[in-house]
Amino acid sequence: KELVLALYDYQEKSPREVTMKKGDILTLLNSTNKDWWKVEVNGRQGAVPAAYVKKL
Score class of each variant (00 low, 15 high):
Val18Thr: 06
Glu2Leu: 12
Ala51Gly: 12
Ser31Cys: 13
Leu7Lys: 05
Asp9Ser: 09
Val18His: 04
Asn30Pro: 03
Lys55Trp: 08
Leu7Gln: 03
Gly23Ala: 02
Tyr52Asn: 06
Asp9Cys: 06
Lys21Tyr: 10
Leu3Glu: 07
Glu40Trp: 07
Val41Leu: 15
Asp35Val: 14
Trp36Gln: 02
Gly43Tyr: 04
Leu7Cys: 12
Pro49Cys: 06
Glu12Ala: 15
Leu28Thr: 01
Leu7Phe: 04
Val53Glu: 02
Met20Ile: 14
Lys38Ser: 13
Asp35Gln: 11
Pro49Met: 04
Lys21Arg: 12
Ala6Gln: 00
Tyr8Ala: 10
Ile25Phe: 06
Lys1Arg: 14
Val18Ile: 14
Arg44Glu: 05
Leu29Thr: 04
Met20Thr: 03
Val4Thr: 02
Asn30Ala: 10
Ala50Val: 07
Ile25Asn: 02
Thr27Lys: 11
Thr19Phe: 06
Lys54Tyr: 09
Ile25Gln: 04
Lys1His: 13
Asp9His: 06
Val48His: 01
Gly23Cys: 08
Tyr10Cys: 04
Gly23Tyr: 04
Val48Lys: 01
Leu29Gly: 01
Gln45Ser: 12
Leu29Pro: 00
Tyr8Glu: 10
Val41Ala: 12
Leu3Asn: 06
Leu28Cys: 07
Lys54Phe: 11
Lys21Gln: 10
Pro15Gly: 10
Glu40Thr: 06
Lys38Tyr: 15
Ala51Arg: 14
Ser14Asn: 13
Lys13Arg: 14
Gln11Pro: 06
Gly46Arg: 04
Trp36Ser: 03
Glu2Val: 14
Lys1Met: 13
Met20Gly: 01
Lys55Ile: 14
Glu17Met: 05
Trp37Val: 08
Arg16Val: 11
Thr27Ile: 15
Pro15Asn: 12
Val48Arg: 00
Gly43Phe: 05
Val18Lys: 01
Lys54Gly: 09
Leu56Trp: 09
Lys22Val: 08
Ala50Ile: 03
Gly23Asp: 05
Val41Glu: 02
Leu5Lys: 07
Val53Phe: 05
Tyr10Gly: 00
Asn30Val: 09
Tyr10Met: 00
Ser31Leu: 05
Trp37Glu: 01
Thr32Glu: 14
Asn42Asp: 12
Lys1Ala: 12
Tyr10Val: 02
Lys21Asp: 04
Leu26Pro: 00
Thr27Phe: 13
Leu3His: 10
Val41Asn: 13
Glu12Ile: 06
Tyr8Val: 11
Lys55Met: 12
Glu2Tyr: 12
Asp35Lys: 13
Thr27His: 10
Lys34Phe: 08
Glu40Met: 09
Ala51Met: 12
Arg44Val: 09
Tyr10Ile: 01
Lys38Gln: 15
Tyr8Phe: 14
Lys22Gly: 04
Leu7Thr: 05
Ser31Met: 11
Leu5Gly: 02
Ala47Gln: 14
Leu7Met: 11
Met20Lys: 00
Glu40Val: 08
Glu2Cys: 15
Trp37Tyr: 08
Lys13Gln: 14
Met20Ser: 00
Thr19Pro: 06
Leu3Thr: 08
Glu40Asp: 08
Ala47Met: 15
Leu26Cys: 11
Ser31Tyr: 09
Gln11Asn: 13
Trp36Tyr: 08
Val39Glu: 01
Val41Thr: 12
Glu40Cys: 12
Tyr8Pro: 01
Lys55Leu: 14
Met20Glu: 01
Asp24Gln: 13
Leu29Asp: 01
Ala6Asn: 00
Arg44Met: 08
Glu17Ala: 06
Gly46Met: 11
Leu5Arg: 09
Lys55Glu: 07
Glu12Cys: 14
Leu28Phe: 03
Leu28Tyr: 02
Tyr52Ile: 07
Gly23Thr: 01
Glu40Asn: 04
Ala50Lys: 07
Ala51Phe: 09
Gln45Thr: 14
Gly46Lys: 05
Leu5Gln: 11
Gln45Met: 10
Thr19His: 05
Met20Ala: 02
Thr32Asp: 15
Pro15Asp: 13
Ser31Gly: 12
Leu29Arg: 03
Asn33Thr: 07
Leu56Pro: 03
Ile25Cys: 08
Glu17Leu: 05
Ala47Cys: 15
